[in-house]
Design a protein around this nucleic acid. Sequence first.
DNA 1: GGGTTACTTAGGCATATGCTTAACCAATTG
DNA 2: CAATTGGTTAAGCATATGCCTAAGTAACCC
Lengths: 117, 117
Amino acid sequence: MLNQLAELDRLFHALADPARRAMVERLSRGPAPVTELARPLPMSLPAAMQHLGVLEAAGLVRSEKIGRVRTCAIEPKAFGLAEQWIAARRTEWELRLDRLGEYLHSLEEGERDGSGD
Amino acid sequence: MLNQLAELDRLFHALADPARRAMVERLSRGPAPVTELARPLPMSLPAAMQHLGVLEAAGLVRSEKIGRVRTCAIEPKAFGLAEQWIAARRTEWELRLDRLGEYLHSLEEGERDGSGD
DNA sequence: GGGTTACTTAGGCATATGCTTAACCAATTG
DNA sequence: CAATTGGTTAAGCATATGCCTAAGTAACCC
């Protein structure tokens, strides 16, 4: 439970970088080796590897090395936690705004039916 | 369009910190002044203000100062972009996995109806 | 007007991040 | 087996981050 805080940290932090999101976008269309992920990025291969490490640490990507090629793939489940956190906030404020709306509505009703002005 | 990259950066980065998420969680339940947002956090008020600045820069929170009290509120629309980005990735890989499933299914069909080993 | 409250600004420090180049290792390939 | 390809490790540097304390400003309260 407490560990989920750190997990959300890693998750959102991993997605907060354009190079890493580009990797995720590429991997959403299918697995790819490290070199292919790095090629379009404006940085050296070691730099790209570090980004990949961040994505793996966040659990968003897994990889397996066969021969000298490391093939990376997306880990769909990992995105759920981030989506859930946002969705939970949304339900909170929607509930609150609903209640506020009802309250305002009840005021209007009261006004119509009670004292004028 | 290009600007959305930086916007996603700011959005995910803003959510990648437990203090900032705590503020968002509090604000999801209703508006609050700066001091109330800062009180539960294990840091000084100026530090908390910086976090608040990050949330505002990301568009997740807006605030208005009346008298000497700055009241903060959540900006529900801002979360949409983050959710949309994740949802877009999800559709990509689901589409792909569907196609893969169909392909594997067609292989099975072909095997059943064609040569037996 | 003097004290308190609520925030704001400024300066500074310690650590973390993001990148680089250089060197290294291990699997192919001619 | 030498050269190439794909990846990895190491060292180092420049900048950004996250926090602090101290000092300042502006509204409200007696």
